[in-house]
Write a protein that binds this DNA or RNA. Structure first.
Lengths: 156, 156
DNA sequence: TAATAACCTACTGTTTTAGTCAATTATTAT
DNA sequence: ATAATAATTGACTAAAACAGTAGGTTATTA
């Protein structure tokens, strides 16, 4: 599985646009400055985000990027898969040819983990993150779009 | 976060020992052959697994490795953290200095994801995996040590 | 027509992955 | 005793991915 700064940067950048876009689109230069992410690196990421239809672009002065869909229609997993290609905890990528043409002994474990992660990340939308960000400072906060046994609690 | 073949190999190897150890300890050469993992690579992994107290070793002829604790006392996350150092989806490793000395906007998201993954992997023990492996072939199987909303179902 | 800002391609340094190789040490069977 | 076994250690390596740079081109607007 890959879950690196590439994906984190993409999520951060998307959230930045969601928070700052109003009448005008948001420039990568602005995101770069606010979030301390290299401009050229952002360009690479946004090339993919645009091809996946998550953002739309406007060229020229006053141009920039906009979120292309309703914020509630874009999940964190959409963003990560757009820039990172795959969220997959199995080594065979679901091909089940991990060991001697069959499924490796631990295949089910990774497949199951994989769907847990995907469940979670696809359950958190950009809209959720915007809400969350606006409520910031209210102490302990947790993303919990789906009810699940022991909820994680992040100390403030 | 890091969740690579290193961790997968370690889990597979530990499961192999758990399945094959009886009166005699299990040799790395045997694991290497059965699981198609390079012997030298296994040596590296087992150096760490031993230092973490997950396995004990016996040198000389008839020697090999044994699981050092009750199978139910060793979780998948124990194994992965032993060889991979960290399971951490936040970039700051919980230090909360991810952005300009404060917490980055997406900090809670990654922290929350992190604890979800850890919850899951620490809920699956070596004993669970052994049971699971022995029951193999019974069709659709899922690891579900903790009840949680939508259970992942892996097609057979 | 000049400034802006997206868009595109190629290149680069660093780290991690996934090993290899060669030697040493401890134990057991002969 | 000694030969075989098997863990243990350390140094080294090719390939990939990550994170970022550099330099240019194209479209749009003031």
């Amino acid at each position: 599985m890959r879950l690196t700064t590439k994906g984190r940067f993409a999520v951060t950048a998307m959230l930045d646009i969601a928070l700052y876009e109003a009448d005008k689109p948001v420039t990568l230069a602005g995101i770069s400055e606010r979030q301390s992410i290299s401009l050229s690196y952002l360009e690479q990421l946004f090339s993919r985000l645009r091809k996946q239809g998550l953002v739309s672009s406007v060229r020229g002065p006053g141009g920039g990027y906009r979120i292309a869909k309703a914020h509630s229609e874009i999940s964190v997993s959409d963003i990560i898969t757009a820039v990172d290609e795959q969220i997959d905890a199995t080594q065979c990528g679901g091909n089940e040819n991990c060991h001697d043409e069959g499924r490796c002994m631990t295949h089910e474990l990774w497949a199951s983990l994989n769907s847990k992660i995907l469940d979670y990340l696809s359950g958190v939308s950009l809209a959720d993150m915007v809400d969350m960000q606006r409520k910031k400072g209210a102490g302990t906060v947790v993303f919990a779009p789906r009810k699940c046994g022991s909820e994680a609690t992040i100390a403030a």
